[in-house]
Nucleic acid binder design. Structure first.
Lengths: 327, 327
DNA sequence: CTGAAAGCGCTTACAG
DNA sequence: CTGAAAGCGCTTACAG
C-alpha cells in the first residue's frame, strides 16, 4: 500500500501538501500542485490510512452504535437511519451487537472507546441501576432511552408513560374488558413506565382488568409465554406489547391457538417498525420517531459542546391504527 | 485519557513492559513487575489506544461486514453469527449497511480498508459484472455468494441451483399445477441459478406451469407486486421465493386478497431465517447454514494464507417444512 | 504557497 | 528480565 510519502515523492512535493490536498486544508495549495498530487495519488492508487490520520488528528470521523439485538427490527431500523444520518455528516457508523448480553455490551463499548469513536449511541440491555456507573472515558454518549439521574450521558426518548396510556386508552375505547400487558424484563428501561401508563388509562375505566407479564424482548419468548396464557381460563381480550418484537410472537401464538385477530384477541405493538405493515394481520402500534431519533442523536454528538453537560430530550410518538386492534 | 507512558511512569518501568503485559508477550515479564503495571493501569483507568496499536503492529483485530440491508432478517442473522464467530477469535466485527446502494457499498468497503480491517466479508448489491473489478487493496475478502471467475475474493455459498430444484420438486410433489417464482433483480447473484433449478424440477413434471417475476429484495416490493399478480386471471397456485424477505410480503398480500395459505396459495421462502417460525402461517423455507457460513468465513479470513489464492466452497442447505407449503 | 520536523500512542527489534 | 529508541502513516504548528 502506497503512503503519503510515496505520493509526495512522485508529485515532487512534501507529505504536508499531500495532507492539505486530501483534507482540503487547513492550508491552501496551488492549483498546479494539487493537480500533481491528485495525479500521483491516482496512479499509485493511494488511500489515506485512516488509522494514522485518526491517531494524529485525534478524530476518527466515526460513531459507534451498540444495540441489544441487531435482529430486532426496531434496532435494525435504528441502525439504518443512523447510518444515513452519520453518512450525511461524513462519518462512519460502526454497529455493535450486544447479543442481549451485558458483558458483550461492555466489551463493545470499551472497544469503540479504544477505537476513539467521536461519539457513542447506546441502547443498553442493562437496567438503570447498572447504567449509573457507565464510564466512557470522555467520549460523548447519547442513550436512546431514559438514563438514571447523575449519569453523564445524554438521552433521547419518547415518554413511555404517555405512550402506554394512549395505547391502553385506545383499547379501552374499543370496549375490551381486559388488557394483557406484555413488557420486557422487570428493571429494564421503560418497563415501569409502560405499567404506569396503562394503569393511568384504566383508572378511568374501572371495569377493565389488566394483567402484566414479562418476557425477554424476543418474539420466540413472547410466543412461548402466550401459548400458556392464551390457553388459560382468563386469557386477555387484548394485549398491549411494549415492543413490536414481542407483538410478532403474540400474533403467531394467537394463530396457533386458533384465535382470530382482532375478533378474539386484539394486539398492539410498541415500536411501530415498518414490519407492522405486513404482518398477518397488520399490526396496530405505537410508533417511535426513528428517523428523528437518529438525526437528533448524531447532532447531539457532533455539534454539542460536551462540557455543557448531558441533555435529556423527549420526542413525539404517535399511534398507527391497523387491523390488529379492531380498527 | 492516560497513555502507556503514564502507566509506565507510575509503575516505575518502561512503555515496552506495559505493552508486554497488555499483550501477554512477545517477551516475558517478571511477576512482580506485571503486578505493578496492572495495579497502575487499574488506578489510572488505562485503556490501550487501539488505533495506535493497530498503526504500529499492522493488525487491527477487526473484520468488516458489508451487507445490502441490515433490516433484512437474513443479513441480521448473518451479522449476529459473525459477531459471535469474530468474538471467539478476539476480533471485532464492524457492520456496514449498504442500504441497497452500490455507491454506499463501495464507500463502506473503502472505509473498512482504510481502517485496515484484517478481513472483509461481503454480500454485495452489485451484479456479477461489477464485481469483477472489486479492488480491496490486499485485504482478504470472502463473499457469501458466487463470485465471477477471475476475482481475487474467496466465496462461500450454497448451490442455488440444487436448492431451487429441491424446493420446486417439493411443490410439484404437492401436486400444485403452477409455480410462481419470485426472485431478486435480474443480474443479481443467484437469480439465474434459481430459475435454472426450478426449470430442472419442472422438466420432469410437464404439466406444471411456471412463471417468473422479479422485485427488489424487500417484503414491501414483493407485497406490491403480488397484489397485482394474485388479482390476475392466472395467479399461481404456489410461489417459491428466492428470499424469506420476499416471502413475508407474499404472505401479507395473500391475506389482503383473502387467500388462505396454503389452501389457496402455497408459499416457500429461500433463506430459512428463524423468523419463518412465527409468521402466520409459519413459512416453509430453504435454509442457508448461517452459523456455518459465519464460522467458515472467519476461518478463511484469519487462518488462510492469502497468497494461496481464492477458494470457492459450497455449503449444505436443507428444506424446512412448515405449514405454508401444505405440509 | 511550501518544506522540515515534531508528535499522536503504541510495538518491537536492538542492546544490555 | 528490562530500557532506550526507531518506526507505523498521518497532521499541523513552526519557519520561511
Amino acid at each position: 500500500m502506497p503512503t503519503a510519502r510515496d505520493v509526495a515523492e512522485r508529485a515532487g512535493t512534501s507529505t504536508a501538501v499531500v495532507s492539505y490536498v486530501f483534507n482540503n486544508g487547513p492550508r491552501p495549495v496551488a492549483a498546479a500542485t494539487r493537480e500533481r498530487v491528485l495525479q500521483a495519488a491516482e496512479e499509485l492508487q493511494y488511500r489515506p490510512n485512516v488509522l494514522a490520520r485518526a491517531l494524529s488528528a485525534g478524530r476518527t470521523l466515526s460513531i459507534g452504535l451498540v444495540v441489544p439485538h441487531i435482529r430486532n427490527p426496531y434496532f435494525a431500523a435504528l441502525a439504518e437511519q443512523l447510518e444515513a444520518a452519520t453518512r450525511q455528516r461524513d462519518h462512519l457508523l460502526l454497529i455493535g451487537d450486544a447479543g442481549g448480553d451485558a458483558d458483550q455490551e461492555r466489551a463493545h463499548i470499551s472497544s469503540f472507546i479504544g477505537r476513539k469513536v467521536d461519539g457513542l449511541i447506546l441502547v443498553s440491555v442493562r437496567d438503570q441501576q447498572a447504567l449509573i456507573s457507565l464510564d466512557t472515558g470522555g467520549v460523548p454518549v447519547v442513550a436512546l432511552h431514559q438514563m438514571p439521574p447523575g449519569s453523564s450521558a445524554s438521552s433521547l426518548s419518547i415518554s413511555s408513560v404517555d405512550a402506554a396510556r394512549e395505547a391502553a386508552q385506545h383499547l379501552v375505547e374499543h370496549g375490551y374488558e381486559s388488557i394483557g400487558v406484555l413488557t420486557g424484563p422487570i428493571g429494564s428501561p421503560g418497563t415501569d413506565e409502560h405499567l404506569i401508563g396503562v394503569r393511568q388509562a384504566v383508572a378511568h375505566a374501572p371495569h377493565t382488568r389488566i394483567e402484566h407479564r414479562a418476557t425477554p424482548v424476543s418474539r420466540y419468548a413472547a410466543r412461548d409465554l402466550l401459548r400458556t396464557w392464551l390457553g388459560s381460563q382468563n386469557r386477555p381480550r387484548s394485549v398491549y406489547c411494549a415492543t413490536d418484537e414481542q407483538a410478532f410472537g403474540v400474533l403467531n401464538a394467537a394463530w396457533e391457538a386458533g384465535l382470530a385477530v382482532p375478533d378474539d384477541l386484539a394486539v398492539m405493538g410498541g415500536d411501530g417498525t415498518q414490519d407492522c405493515e405486513v404482518t398477518v394481520p397488520p399490526l396496530t402500534a405505537l410508533r417511535r420517531p426513528v428517523a428523528d431519533l437518529a438525526s437528533r442523536a448524531v447532532e447531539l454528538l457532533l455539534d454539542r459542546d460536551p462540557s455543557e453537560g448531558p441533555v435529556h430530550l423527549t420526542l413525539e410518538h404517535d399511534l398507527v391504527c391497523r387491523v390488529s386492534c379492531g380498527c
